[in-house]
Design a protein around this nucleic acid. Structure first.
Length: 405
DNA sequence: TCTGGGGTCCTAGGACCC
DNA sequence: TCTGGGGTCCTAGGACCC
């Protein structure tokens, strides 16, 4: 049986949501109607464009432009900072509305969902449902979406990317040739800026060129990725809408430093703060990590990373930090000017599934109690109420036990 | 005042084993 | 006579996504 799939994509999500939030708070301007962007903080060297209004787009401002660049293109551009709490709120509101149509929803990102409508259609057609959702989101939530209508996820996603904003597009099998094949290959999902020039060199310029090229040759040149791009160009995708909540495969936290850092002790302090955030989230998911990975980016954008296995899966701040610190010391050289530092944990397993020796259990129990106290304080008084970062020895935090809840 | 931060998946190559 | 050859596990790095 053919699947009935919708892909919902919020138009200029961060900017639209900021606009709606401002209007709700009594603002008399709608920043969607003026040249405006959501951007990072230049003084913290994270000054890139995260979202732009249609008016800003007219000045050919692009996502990921530097703010400096955006201002050069449009000197009186209005810049607003990002706030993920607001985005989460509107994303959840959208999700709640969509749940009224199907419970088979995959939250692909904060502003994109796939809906599997196969079992829920009844008499109405897929296109009618898409139009109804589009209208309701606009009227009830105050922002607009693009909706792609198709029989698989890839085609639905491609369709939602056609003309914007506030549009419903179909991309059924018989429409692939006319609607998708004339597009440049850079428009195809999963074809990024490294692969596009390689294909162009092979005289493959449009998605149609790719669809009609030699699959075996692509396999030889690009491996698995080659097969996938050929299938995508031909509209082939058998993947399911992943509507069940999945636990993450890894958890990470990184930061671009406001100034380059050369002092290893300073880096260790930052690493500890990052590790605390990571392990806190890990414990929320009730997962344990088996590997720790530390990433460094130097002032000239050289990325290096080291990873190592833990002897026993854990979510303990102390143990994960100990490994992270060891990795940092391995990697770091005197001459390095560090721009970015990050830590992530991978190979996660769920806590219940783990079987530990009695001995390990004893050790873990002690650490868990400490982490528990810290987590509770954070939940009660906010994340920044407590931090073990700094010169403070980890063991000193045992004193926290004395703090009453 | 150039270039974010959160992820997932894949691949090449080394170590080690039989 | 030129030092095979699978298999597995692990790590570093790259490509891509939003």
């Amino acid at each position: 049986m053919k699947k009935q799939i919708l892909h919902i994509d919020v138009n200029n999500a961060f900017l639209s949501w900021t606009a709606v939030n401002m209007l709700e708070k009594g603002s008399d301007i709608d920043i969607r109607e003026i040249p405006s962007i959501i951007g990072g903080d230049e003084t913290k060297r994270s000054g890139i464009v995260l979202a732009k209004s249609m008016k800003a787009k007219e000045f050919s401002i692009k996502t990921a432009d530097t703010i400096y660049e955006a201002r050069r293109k449009c000197p009186n551009i209005k810049i607003f900072s990002s706030d993920f709490k607001i985005y989460r709120k509107y994303s959840d509101m959208l999700y709640q509305l969509l749940l009224q149509y199907t419970d088979k929803i995959e939250r692909f990102s904060i502003d994109e969902c796939f809906l599997d409508m196969t079992e829920y259609l009844m008499k109405a057609t897929l296109i009618e449902k898409a139009n109804e959702i589009s209208k309701r989101v606009k009227e009830e939530l105050g922002f607009t979406v693009n909706i792609g209508v198709a029989h698989n996820k890839l085609l639905a996603k491609m369709a939602s990317d056609f003309t914007k904003p506030d549009k419903v597009h179909t991309l059924f099998e018989e429409e692939i040739k006319t609607k998708m094949w004339p597009l440049p290959i850079s428009d195809l999902f999963m074809l990024g800026k490294k692969t596009v020039p390689k294909l162009n060199n092979m005289q493959i310029k449009t998605i149609g060129d790719l669809a009609n090229s030699d699959k075996n040759l692509l396999n030889k040149k690009f491996g698995k990725h080659g097969i996938q791009m050929w299938e995508y160009a031909n509209g082939i995708d058998n993947s399911e809408v992943q509507y069940k909540k999945e636990k993450p495969k890894g958890v990470g936290n990184s930061i671009t430093l406001s100034q380059n850092v050369t002092d290893i002790e300073k880096l260790e302090e930052i690493l500890l703060a990052l590790t605390e955030q990571v392990t806190y989230r890990l414990r929320k998911y009730e997962l344990l990590a088996n590997t720790v990975n530390v990433q460094l980016r130097t002032s000239n954008f050289q990325d290096t990373s080291h990873q190592g296995k833990l002897t026993v899966a854990t979510s303990s701040t102390k143990e994960i930090y100990a490994k992270a610190k060891q990795l940092l010391i391995q990697m770091y050289h005197e001459s390095m000017e560090i721009r970015l530092i990050g830590v992530r944990v991978d190979n996660l397993i769920s806590k219940e599934e783990t079987q530990l020796s009695l001995f390990q259990d004893k050790i873990n129990e002690k650490q868990e109690k400490l982490d528990d106290v810290v987590d509770k304080i954070k939940e009660k008084y906010g994340y920044n109420s407590i931090t073990r970062a700094g010169k403070m020895e980890l063991n000193n935090t045992l004193k926290l036990k004395d703090i009453k809840e």
